[in-house]
Design a binder for these strands. Sequence first.
RNA 1: GCGGGCGUAGCCGAAUUGGCAUAGGCGCCGGACUUAGGAUCCGGUGGGCGCCAGCCCGAUGUGGGUUCGAGUCCCACCGCCCGCACCA
Length: 913
Amino acid sequence: MSAYDHHTIEAKWQRRWAEQGTFRVPNPGEPGFDSSRPKLYVLDMFPYPSGEGLHVGHPLGYIATDIYSRFQRMQGRLVLHPMGFDAFGLPAEQYAVETGVHPRITTERNVATFTRQLRAFGLSYDWDRTFATTDPGYYRWTQWIFLRLFGSWYDPEQGKARPIADLEAELAAGTRLADGRAWDDLTPAERRAYLDGRRLAYLDEVPVNWCPGLGTVLANEEVTREGRSERGDFPVYRRPLRQWMLRITAYAERLLDDLDLVDWPESIKAMQRNWIGRSEGARVLFPVEGRNAVIEVFTTRPDTLFGATYMVLAPEHPLVDSIVPDTWPAETPASWTGGAVAPRQAVDDYRRWAAGRSELERQAEAREKTGVFTGGYALNPASGAPIPVFLADYVLMGYGTGAIMAVPGEDDRDWEFAEVFGLPIIRTVQPPDGWEGKAYTGDGPAINSGFLNGLLVDVAKPRMIAWLEEQGSGQGAVTYKLRDWLFSRQRYWGEPIPILHGPGGELRPLGDDELPLLLPEVEDYRPRTDLADDAEPEPALGRAPEAWKTVVRDGVAYGRELNTMPQWAGSCWYYLRFCDPHNATALVGVEAERYWMAGRGVDLYVGGVEHAVLHLLYARFWHKVLFDLGRVSTPEPFGRLFNQGYILADAFQDERGVYVAAAEVEERAGVHLHRGRPVVRSFGKMGKSLKNSVSPDEIFARYGVDTLRLYEMFMGPLDASKPWTTRDIVGVHRFVLRLWRALVHPETGALLVSEDLPEPELAALTHRTIAAVTADLEGLRFNTAVARFFELNNALVGRERIPRWVAEAFVRLLAPFAPHLCEELWERLGHPGSVALAPWPEYDPALVAEDTVTLVVQVNGKVRDRIVVSAAIGEEEARARALASAKVAPYLQGSAPTRVVVRLPHLVNIVVP
RNA sequence: GCGGGCGUAGCCGAAUUGGCAUAGGCGCCGGACUUAGGAUCCGGUGGGCGCCAGCCCGAUGUGGGUUCGAGUCCCACCGCCCGCACCA
């Protein structure tokens, strides 16, 4: 063989890596484990094995982590670099439903396809550690973690989760009271309810996002702003339902604070902070006039309390019924009543109207304020004034207390509402001179505010909170946007929830020894999507055999939980399982976890920005629970996170606006045609929806894997989104061919290496390349590393023979990027072992620095001359050489410069008037 | 509206702490090999002038500022991308 034949070489080395287990990495205690080598855990966000297969955009991050892993391995680290599959959930099930095949079959088939495609990229995973979240040996432990969540409560005093048995013991011992009552005074049912209400996994009647089109409920995170399902784009309706919830809100503060511990992109941290949505302020109590009721509000502006001229409750607020009087108070304006003869009717009408409004409608109606008067009044605790209580849908039940004090003078929304209903507006902060706007939300001295007058906002807030606390009218408080995690799904293809339902609402967890609770076979696993929009959801497991659904324990008949876990469950902890994937007695062995997760957990985690909130927040939450329970040793799972950008490509739409297959579009004389019809070009993320995917297969066939890997890295910075340009690949391919030709004779196949030492110039360039590539890889700057390879290669072009030292350094530097090519060259250079295990080349810092440098001579900052000087030049000499320059002389005009700035060894700047 | 980020050649993109702007690739131009080239190889490529040596000029979205010196730092603006959005 003489010309570079990528087909043969790639097949040869991929086979050899598999046969020799080149990338297997042992755990502590296993044969071959070398405790002297530092560990590194490099992880990709694992994929859903969809039925469509990969396009060239998918492996971008995988190639990057593979290169990084190979680099670190050659530097002597023990690198954990695994891959697996997130295979439960809607995509797999939807596909199965469409094709009529059991999801297990399609999932297995897709996993096999994905595995084969990933292997074709030459990725150095330790395939012995692979698994899918659908493997019973894996979801056994997902269920096990659920049982820990069910069996734990959050102790606010210790700020951590603890076994619920501890709580029960403290209650039984009398060191703790249950809502002020002694444990002995509670009935067994009350005790159970008390404990169940404190678990991290609990059942609650909550308003859910019910998606009839998918036959399941969805988490808030899975619903788009338009009120549709993220998957499938079906309409979603709000309705109350009894569901499993996970108490992630208990961890809000820690999830927020611990973002400071991790090295993540600032944008992702910002998105998580935004999602958690911490607000500081106060809870304030407003007594309802003439009733034995109190409305509690949350406000971030307690300093404006004197300006609260009305209140608003969310339509669903539970207190509404108890404050509505039988008749309208005297002198109620007609515009407040919604045309109803009595408050009761007005409230009912408004509630019905608000509930029937979709999110989309609310969006479209541009925030025009609507509402209705409840007929009730509350007392402003600061001013003592009675203020009307309204119902309006601009107040959301899900945030704060579902009620607000309205301060139109300092809040835009309240101002708008006050204008619609003709409510009084009292300014309590002095706006700046010349203020012509409406609500003023800025800083300024308090006015119309009694004891606060003259104080700036930051001073007035704590003063008011202190006053409220004195009066018993409120207290300082913190609120979060984050809500508990809705954990039930009515679909089939998910982890069964290992709970039994007994008489009287008893919840009985399965024992750890009963896991895994396997998914039962059902005849029809399809979701019921033909139900009316308001029908009770029917979990798919409701159609499981009776023998599975009913269990007798201690003579009592229990029914199995029929909901399954959501998509995200399996991906919440898979990084832990990779540390010890075959462990049959624990989710991860203590020693393996301590070793691989040491330091900051996963050392590098690479994936798409689309998981910024969902997956990363849920996984952090589970990790912290496991941390509290002593199962893991780090407070955070992912020490360093990196988001790869998207690969973009041209897309084409026909005259109907429908996307057509970009691969079938031809360009003729600047016009794009699809089957002879003109199409319009646009641009976007490569994928199925824009029909602009490029298959790796055609690239493999023509250029080979190594060229594709190099090209994807060369396109630009890893975190940037960048356009795919098939035309550009040829540049990278030429590099591969050129390097091969420089080392292997094109006709004879002889090795073109000399045993001579490189001349100083080439040696210096090689040392500089080693230094630069090493630094680039440490900083994940793959694109500039590739440019360095081109430069070194360009210096080798035209040489009869390449000095062995240069060739061997080059091949090892390039090996992480182009492993097949470099294995072959390494073997031909006479090395029996894999280049993947060869030591990373070292450079001599003394040789990186050049002997001579170009001294730039500037006059007033403009380059006027360049002089080659010794790198060790002194300041005086540099100054003298610069001033002596003939090219500088005209600018000096014989006069002395005002100043000469010398920056050794590169620059002299002469300042003249 | 709030938050995060980005604007450098025809295109993708380089540029430690402020210090030679435009590395590297594509494209383009010229040449070689060739029946052929949309393969491959060699060279050139900011603009202008020039016989290769060389000289002049311009430029990092716009306008200011700091500095001996700004792609880089500061202020204002323009444009684009992403996330959140009636969150009290």
